[in-house]
Each structure stands twice: as structure tokens, then as C-alpha cells.
Design a protein around this nucleic acid. Sequence first.
RNA 1: GCCUGGGUGGCGAAACUGGUAGACGCGCCAGACUCAAAAUCUGGUUUGGGCAACCAAGUGUGGGUUCGAUUCCCACCCCAGGCACCA
Length: 829
Amino acid sequence: MSSEAENQYAPGEVEAKWQRLWEERGTNSFTADELRSAQSPYYNLMMFPYPSAEGLHVGNMYAFTGADVHGRFHRLTGRDVFEPIGFDAFGIHSENFALKQGVHPMDLIPSNIANFTRQLKAIGGMYDWDHTVDTTDPAYYKWTQWLFLQLFKAGLAERKEAPVNWCPSCMTVLANEQVIQGLCERCDSAVEQRHIAQWFFRITEYAQRLLDNLEHIDWSESTRKAQQNWIGRSEGATLRFPVIEGGNGDPGTVDPLTVTADGDVIEVFTTRPDTLFGATFMVLSPEHPLVASITTDAQQAAVAAYQAQAAKTDLVSRQKADKEKTGVFTGGYCRNPANGAPIPVWIADYVLMEYGTGAIMAVPGGDERDFEFATAMGIEIVRVVAGEGDGADTPLAEAYTGDGVLVNSGPFDGLGVADGKRAVTAWLGERGLGELKVNYRLRDWCISRQRYWGPPIPIVHCDACGAVAVPEDQLPVELPRVDDFKPDDTGVSPLARVASWYETTCPGCDGPARRETDVSDTFLDSSWYFLRYPSTDRNDAPMDDGITARWLPVDSYIGGNEHAVLHLMYSRFINMVLKDLGHIDFEEPFVKFRAHGLITRNGAKMSKSRGNVITPDAIIDQYGADTFRTYLMFMGPLEEGGDYRDEGIQGPFGFLHRLWDAVVTAKPDTAADEDVERKLHKTIKQATEQIPELGYNTAIAAMMECLNAVRAGGRQPAVAEVEPLVVMIAPFAPHLAEELWERLGHGKSIFAGANWPAYDEAKVRDEVVSVAVQVNGKLRGTISLAPGTDQAEAEALARAEENVARHLDNAEVRRVIYVPNRLLNFVVG
RNA sequence: GCCUGGGUGGCGAAACUGGUAGACGCGCCAGACUCAAAAUCUGGUUUGGGCAACCAAGUGUGGGUUCGAUUCCCACCCCAGGCACCA
């Protein structure tokens, strides 16, 4: 081989060589002892992928590369960076694919994982392959089941019959978070409501903490807001409206002070207790338990018909806001505790059983929906809030929802809305008819799935003892290999067809018992995987306490915002529970989270149906992983995503080639040129500041500029000029950097032997600055000055500029604005 | 409707704390090398006018503050994502 050929950049060879060396030398892996003793731990996490049959797509590559660059950068600055990867391999997705292909998931997943592993190595990720996680491995889900038991024992897991979201296509229940606008997030089928006993985690008990902590974690704003919205805190009051017994006919108004909460009451949640005097009717959800007793004989038929109608209507169409208001009068009345007036009780499907108390006080004068309903039904509308310029009797053409003062509200007239809320609630509170209340939109997390491909829920049902925890020393409850794992519409898992598996004895009384046949939600698997990674060497405990104390919480988490309210919320919840139970000592698992943007191609979303999907393997074959990585990071800010243009990859491709050529031809033992050195220090400063903030695109641009200066006019660079560039490009193009580092005569891996270059503030400063000269804010010339030149000198030089002089001619300079090193502006009259 | 982001050349995008808009890259144009092409290298490239010097316009729209606005304020339009008969 000629030396010329040796000096050619051959990405394929370089990458194969270094991937092999990293693996042989264990460059990126820690031993358990190293994890225990690391001096400067930095836990760099990315969202582990679901190992599909199609392999990694560009979106994965983009996210993983973005996170890997972050990890490699911190490694070069001297941190001990732990960067694990794993596989989220349980779940409907794999199961459906297995069903379609007629393969068993237990056979499918290992080959998918092998393929993913190959791809993850090919892209040059700095993964610790000694600490991977596969959620379908009994050695992992043993601890997922353990986790369930901890919640169960703490009373945070409960089985209850409740209306749940049923996807008729996936044939399983779904958590609220998995229903997107009434459709299944996986298959877009309209979700139905069913009543089945399910296991729930009581995440609602943590609603306020989940909300409060959002204030002091360093997360992408969009993600924090999404969680805030999802938790949906609203402040208001619970108010009670006594039902008037046997209320056929008009029962008449009574003194409000005689109204008490004895007997049946309709409890409502409202954010506007101040408008109570305007409550002219009540609306119950058709499923509300009091409907039966309130409905009068005469209204029985009509109410039953409406209930049947509502039950038939699926949730999607029922929740359309623009639907016309419908409803039926029950014939019954309750008393408005504010004024003692009897008000009619209706049922209507715009009131949802799942939110608040399933009943509302309707104030048509102050709520748009109630106004619409009252108008349609001919119910009285009273104004209780007067806005600016309104009187107590100003007619309402629509609901008035703004601020103002209370009117037609007895003793509370004249109070503002905020004061009114407190005063009215306190007044009712004296009689036990109301109190302030905070309500959340967040629902408990339904974790049961009537499917096969998941960890069995470790519970045994016994007629005598009820639901009994499987003793921890009997974990894992292994998922049996069954050939017929097709789900059905019965509302139970395929495991319920395997008597040999579910028949067991009760751990409590040794009597005959039956295993829980539902499996748990995939999001339970992923709610704690980051806790497991550093402790995978331990088989006797989910986590090694010493290692956990050293490495967690996670320092940096980069991932997709599609998990803003799913995985990220569940992980925070589980983490809090583990803290409360004394297993860990931190409340928030991810100190810093950044959501990356999405990749499009030529401006369009990538999808299989469009046929515009990029195959990472093909790009890596053609250009090499280093070029691919650098291009992905160069397209735009990581947090905003970017548009993949096939021709665009030429830029980074050429850049890496030119960098290679510059380094292999550089002169050793030569001092750096002064101007080049200044450029270099500027570049170091930029890269050092921008890379940790994920400003990869501008950091790369700065390096390109620097290389252009190094090679300007075809000059031969000095090693001193290019070596720092090799280190700075290393996070983006790690193989190339390793190879060049070695060729520069260094023994160790660049990631072990190199230090991130430091810049000298003095060398960042320019010797000559170019100052803009404006006349009335318009650019008329530029002058070159020494930094810090005073105004008099600058002005003299500026006036001497021909074009500037021309614009100043015959004009009176009224003011001169001088911004040193930047600009000089003559204001003329 | 509410909450996040975002809107800048032919394209992906830059722009510190209000201070020369368009860095860097793609593409395109011209040139060098070549029999030729590819690759590579050099130069040019916001738009309009002009041979040029230069002039004018220009960061979604309309106003405002300022010597000066992509940047700050007000109103609005459009795109992406989240939430929503949520009481």
C-alpha cells in the first residue's frame, strides 16, 4: 500500500477499526467497581428504543446522536460519563407485529435486539454495553413485578371496577394518557367505555407534588407545560345542594338559612362559587348515581331513554364541544342554598361522570355551556356578575364570564369575583354546605392490560384471602410461552386460557387460587429502567444503593416530547413513590430534560406510506457514521429538529474530508500563525459555550469557519492549529477524531487521553475591530480601529470616509452615538 | 378557545445584553485542473436599479417605543405540537 493511499480518508475502514477497538478495550464501559468509585459521575440518558422489526429510523438516530454528542463532550471535559442503552421490548407493538407475521414474540424480540445493537454500534454511540436492559428479560421484569408489589403493599395499587377506555381493535384497556382525542394512540380506533375491574396506581395522590416539582426542575418549557395541562389543577369549591324530597310540583322558596345538608345532597365542584345565586338549575351526568332516586314517575321513561342514548354514544362524539346541547328534566328539584329557591334537576351528556363530581350547578348567566343549555330548554337566566358599564339588570345576550362585581346576590352584592368566591364558600361552610376545594384533571393510572406480551401482574386471587401479593422470593412470575396469544374481546387476557399457568395455591392460606391473568402496562417497564441501568450487576436487588447514590438522579435526559405526559409523568411518579418508601433518596429522577425536535425530509413528515423514509444503514454505508452524525447535528438546533435534504450531507462530508487532509499534512513543531490562533481561540470559546446548550449546529459552523481559516489560500497548517479541532469534532465524528488523534502520535483513545481545549480570553479579542458608521441609522461605511479607540478618534476617522462625508455634507450633526468596537451613528437634522 | 414553540435568501439556517441582517452549509453561476466527466480547488450569489462607485427595499402583517428593532411593546395572520362541553 502506498503512503498516499494510507493518507486517504476512508470512513468505512476508520469506523470499523475504532468500533472494534472501543469494544476490545472497553473504552465506553464501566465495571461495577468503577461505577462504585467514579470521581466525577455524569449520567447521560436517552430514551431507550422499542426494538421494532424495521430497525432504527432516522428519528432514533437523531435523538441518540444528539444525546451521544452531549455525553462525549462531557467525557472530553473530564467527567466519568455513564451512557447506557436498552430495549423497551414488551408491549402491544411487538405483539401485534408478531401476530401479523406469525412469529412468537419470544423469538422475534431477540433478533430485533440483535439488529438494533448492530445499528447502535454502527452509528458510533458511546454505549456501555455491559449495562444494558431488556424489559422482557425475566431478570429485569422480576423487579418490575417487585415494583408493583411495593405499590400494592403501600396501598397505592388498587383493583377497582371503573369505567375504563377499551380499544376494540387492540382488545385491551388503555390508560387515559394513551387516549388521544378519543382515539387509541396506537391504532386510532375510537375508544369505548367499559366497566371492568382493573389495577390502578393512585397517581392522583401525587398530583400536587408532581405539579409543584415542575417549578424547580430544569426541563424544556414545552414538556413542563404539557405536564401542567395534563395534571390540570383548578381551584374552586365543593358545594352541596339538598334534594327536595318527593318534589312533585313547585315546593316553594324557603329561608336560605334553614337549608341544611341533611338527606340526599347533590355535590358539585365549581370554580365559580361566587355565581351561586345565578344557579337556576342543576345538571347531572346521565350515569350519576342519584339520577334514579331523583327522577319522578312521570319522567321515568324520558330519563331512561336519554340514559340509553348516552350510553350508546361513544366518547369521541359525546365530547365534541360543538355538538348541540341535549338533556332531559328528571322532574326532581333541589334547593339552591344561596337563596332557598327550588331549582330543577336535569341530566345531560355534556356533564361527564369522570370529572369533578359528575354533577354541576348550572349558571347560565356566567357559563357559556349553561347559557346554551338554558336557552335551548327555556330555563331562567340571571345575571350575577356585572362587568364594566353593566347594571344588575343589563340583559345578557350571552354568558358573561369576565371579571366584575356581584349583583343579584343578596348580601354579597358589590363584592369582586375573587372576594365573592371566598365569601360565598365561607358562608355556606358555616352550614356544612361547601368548602374550598382543589380539583385535578389527572386520573389514576390504569396499568392492567388484557394482552399477552407483558409482565404478569404478581397477584394471586383467593376466594378466602382476596387479592394476595406473590411473595417477593417467588418472583419473577414468569410469562409462560404460549402459542395462542391472540387477544379477544372477552375483557380478559389470553393468559386466562392457560389453566395450567393460572391455577395455583394461595400464598396466604394454601387454598386453591388463581393468578392474576392481566399483564402490566409497558409504561411501567419504562418508568424505572434508568434506575436499573447502573445496577444490572446486581441480581439480588433492583438497585445497588451505593451506585444509585453516586449516579442518580440522571444528569441529562434527552428524548422526544411525545412522552411528555406518558413516560415522563409515570417515571416521576414511580420515583416519588420509591422515595417515600425509602428505596431512594431523591424525588425527581431527571434533573435536566431536553426535548429534541423532529426530523422532516424535504419539508415533509417522514412516513412509510409517503415512501420518504431514510434508511440510516444506507447513509452510513455511503458516507460513514461520522458524516451522518455531523450532518444530523448540523441541520438545525437539536431542540427544534431539522429538515433532512439529501444534498445537504455533502457539506459535512466535505468538511470532514478537508479536516482529515489538513491534519494528515500538518507540519509538526511549528508555531501557530497569529491570526489563525485567534480564530482558533474564538472557535474554542464558541464550541465550549454552545455544545452543552445543544447548539450543535452553530458549534459545527464555527469549526468549519476555523478550518477555512486554517486552510486559507491553500497554506499548509501547523499541527498546533489543527489538533484542537480534532478534539472539538470528536463528539460529532468520534471515529475520525480517534484516528487523527492516533496519527498525531497519541497513544490512548482521544476520549481517555485528550482534554477539551481551553481558550485564552486575550486571544479571543481582535487586534482590529471593524466599526460600522451610520448616518441616521443607515450604514454608510465601516472603519477599522484598534479595540477601545475613543470617540474623538473614531469620529475623525469616520468623517474622513468618503461616503460618510458625502452623507454628512451640508447637514448639521445633532448627536453622535458611539458604541465602542461596534458602531458610530451620526444623527443629522 | 387556552397553553407551548416557530415564521428570516432558491433551500437548511446564523445574529451577543437593542448596534454592520443573512455567519456556516446546500444549491446555483463563472473560472482552474481534465480529451471529457466526476472529484477537487478559486471566486460570486437577499431583491430591484446601475458598467461601477453607490442607491433603494427587505426578517409573517399592521401599528408603537428608540439615534438605531429579527430582537422590546400592542393588535392580528399563518404553521407545528399539547389540552379542551374540565364545571
